[in-house]
Design a protein around this nucleic acid. Structure first.
Lengths: 210, 210, 210, 210
DNA sequence: GATGAATGAGAGTTCATTCAT
DNA sequence: GATGAATGAACTCTCATTCAT
């Protein structure tokens, strides 16, 4: 179902070192891309901010686009990790769902710079790679799909199976909205207010009892 | 409230001619930006596609970013025009709201390339300009705010005044979602199905009767 | 029979100007390539020696290899022109042949730097282009083929038709030898001595009378 | 007369090992240079194809140019060895000469890739080194000089002493021509036909009887 | 003696912008 | 008002060479 993860060739042999250096690259590039955008960040800046020379940078990647891929993938990985860590899968689907939404919105809030980065820059990835990165997004949506299905199964949620995916997408989008429209929303709401309000809206329709 | 529209200086005196040429520029650039992205489109390409020389292009703009601004502004203008044309402000707030949502979703669908363009490229605008462009987005949200307020006033909608802006934003976001997630959504829904489903979700909470 | 001449695209429209600038490029590049070799000459050096900026250079070529092609082609053109100008096609084949050999050897001598350049650098051309350039060499050999055939026809040369091409190649190669082995040959011979000696050798076999 | 062979310093002490490793380097580099050319072959590729690391490569050479020198020298050595092995120095000068020419042309044919390599890449050698490599060429020409002189001495060849060197050069050049113009010559001749034809041409003038 | 990660000068190429015509 | 040739800073990427381990 999901595209296979891209493996970026490296001229360096030691896998431990590759991982370490790529973490440095990601750490450096995330901040640069957030502040200047992908196109306005130069490979030299990435190298310098990573703590090594331009030559060394290219020992660990093949092209600037590879850095963007590494960054996007790392962000998604962190999003998913944080989300999964925050969710406790005990209790009714409804209960889990509420927890998951709160967690997701919180993760969006904490990672808003990086979420924005993905949305604004991932289009610069090569087509093939872009598909994979978009696929990671779907994996996160899938978490909500599963929770919703659990809720349907245990009777705590009433929702046509047909609309499960849409509901999952709605949750995702309303979470991302907190990021995209923060300049407007932060004026009126705290994260908590926003979260509770959206939960009310989203669940009114589908929760059997709350 | 809203930022003042930016005036791009031109070396040319005749305002009629300026408008005509800028329309040519916008027409050409929209397609180029959609297909290649802002950064990968060259000013030479814009000039050629506009039907004149690079020198002439720079008689009507001061920088490449100006073209992006013209394009974003034109897209917003078209969005707003289409939306306003489609809405009939007669009837209860609830009725108008449904019509407006349907219209907005349809406009999003029809203009999806251009909507995407704004979301992906507007970040390349100079800060000041970006603020103005984001402001245009608010103007559209404002349409929904007004409709919601009318509905509250005439009793067809039950919604805390405090949440009006959020509801308007939700509508916008769910409309934009049809664009951003089209690769996922189009598999499961037609625009009409999607629209009705989301209307149900959005209004369940707030409509007094439907 | 011969490959079609390559047309290098230019960003500049005026054909007169293209020709003029390319002449400048060729003039500059020939000397640089002779002195430093193709690989050790930078595009910046070519631009500077041509009298304009690197940006301007790239208005008239698409790649550094294009410069090499221009240079090789110009050298061949000059070789052929000089040779054809020097040959008088009146008289018996034998007489014309002797004149042609002397002319060819003289041209080789005068252009020895450039002949060397072609032999040492043309391999860096893209395959397709290389084929064309090698073809030009054949066109020159063809001059000798025609003279030989004229001599056979008028009875002044006795040579199996089958060996005409080989004889033409031999003439070419012995002319080029004056270039490739000049470090050895110049110690022992003047150009004139060398020429007469080789003519004797080459014609002993085939001339009916001299 | 001939330049002294260049001695490449090595960080390694053991002469046996140096020789072994350099043979590996030559073997690897010859093929790489033939296929990609000297400039497009990287030292990393040479090391890998040699079977060891880049660091080890530089234990046995001081620069990439050293590899080119090793390669050119090895090719010349092989040429000379093969030629000397094939020649039987018994008989009249004329007889030996014919044998030598046939052998030389055959060696040229068998080693054509490598002969071409020397002609196209040796110019990239440092001036000093180049002189030595070109000198090796002379040593081979010297073989023919000696044979010619033997033929003059024993009366089987009639040739002005003054022209001996030229005749030797002619032989060399016509042999190399089989390599340089193979794309043209192979269409018309087998190696044997070519050889016999050229022998006829070359000897007509000088052989007392054949 | 062998390794391979690190280096950085320097390469070819692009393209937004200018300005003389 | 229109043109398009000229500019050169800035870009991504390469690769011969070094040296600590």
């Amino acid at each position: 179902m999901s595209e296979k993860r891209k493996t970026i060739p490296s001229l360096v042999k030691d896998p431990k070192l590759i991982e370490k250096r790529r973490e440095q690259i990601i750490e450096a590039a995330v901040h640069l891309f957030i502040n200047k955008g992908f196109h306005k960040t130069t490979t030299r800046e990435i190298a310098r901010a990573s703590g090594f020379s331009i030559g060394t940078l290219y020992e660990y990647i093949e092209s600037k686009e590879d850095v963007l891929y590494l960054v996007c993938d790392a962000i998604h990985a962190e999003m998913e990790t944080r989300l999964r860590e925050a969710i406790n899968f005990n209790g009714t689907g409804l209960k889990i769902l509420k927890l998951a939404i709160r967690s997701f919105f919180r993760v969006m809030d904490q990672m808003s710079d990086r979420v924005l980065l993905i949305y604004q820059e991932s289009k610069s990835l090569p087509k093939e790679t872009l598909r994979y990165v978009l696929g990671r997004e779907e994996e996160i949506a899938q978490i909500f799909v599963e929770i919703l299905q659990k809720g349907i199964a245990d009777g705590s949620l009433r929702l046509d199976e047909k609309h499960v995916k849409l509901m999952a997408d709605n949750i995702m989008v309303l979470g991302e909205m907190w990021v995209f429209r923060r300049w407007a929303l932060h004026k009126h709401y705290t994260l908590e207010e926003y979260t509770e309000k959206q939960i009310t809206l989203l669940l009114r329709e589908i929760s059997v009892s709350d």
